[in-house]
Structures are given as C-alpha cells and as structure tokens.
C-alpha cells in the first residue's frame, strides 16, 4: 500500500502516537475505573474525556498564541548544532494548563 500521499514525518508520527496513547489510556481507565460527572470551577459537568478534550484544544491555542506573539526562534543551540525552539516553553505551559484543567475543571 502506497501512503506517500499522506506525507508522514517522524515528528507528526510521534505527535499522533501520543494522541493515540492518550485515547487508549482514557478507554482503559473508563473500563477499569468508571466515573461520574465532576463539577469544577466552570460549574459544568465534566468527565475525564471532557477534561482531556479541553486540555488538547487549549494546548493547541497556547502553541498558536505563542507562535503569534513570541515566535518560535531557537532558545539555545546545543553542541552539534541542534537548536531547541522556544516553542517548547509553550509545551511546558500546556502541560501546566492541562494539569490545572484535570485538577480544577
């Protein structure tokens, strides 16, 4: 089967593998530990899945806003010329945001 048209890169491959891992974890959790709706700061009923959705969409916006307002210039250059983009700071921010969503929403 020729999937050249899908234009895979290892970076997007890792990205989608992480999403798939999240979804699988959620499925296993839902079977092993069923849950009730949870009411957090927003006052709306949320499940783990809702909170994952909010975390993912929010993280996408955090990354886009970071690119828009801060940019994605290299933060540091490691030995061997490997550049670490400042966008990783947005990823760390997203993790903080996601844990806040899971804790309080």
């Amino acid at each position: 089967m020729d999937i050249a048209w899908m234009a895979w890169t290892w970076q997007t491959g890792i990205f989608f593998a992480c999403i798939a891992l999240c979804l699988t974890t959620m499925t296993v959790l839902a079977i092993r530990y069923p849950e009730n709706d949870h009411y957090g700061v927003l006052g709306i009923p949320t499940t783990r899945g809702d909170r994952l959705f909010l975390s993912l969409v929010g993280s996408a916006f955090i990354h886009l806003l970071w690119i828009g307002f801060v940019g994605a210039n290299p933060l540091v250059t490691l030995a061997g010329g490997v550049e670490i983009s400042s966008l990783w700071l947005a990823s760390i921010l997203s993790l903080v945001y996601a844990s806040a969503v899971f804790r309080w929403v």
Partner: peptide, 26 residues
C-alpha cells in the same frame, strides 16, 4: 492527519515533501 502532516511541510507536487517546521504557522 494528512492535513496535519502537510502543515509542517512544503511540496512542489509528485508526493515530494520538504520539512518546514512551524514556518507556515509563523
């Protein structure tokens, strides 16, 4: 997923793609 793959690359057709990172989003 294909759209996400396209968004970080550039192409001149013929299924040949070149890495562009976050360039398009910038």
């Amino acid at each position: 997923m294909t759209v996400v793959n396209y968004s970080v690359q550039d192409t001149f057709g013929n299924n040949q793609f070149f890495w562009n990172g976050t360039g398009w989003f910038k």
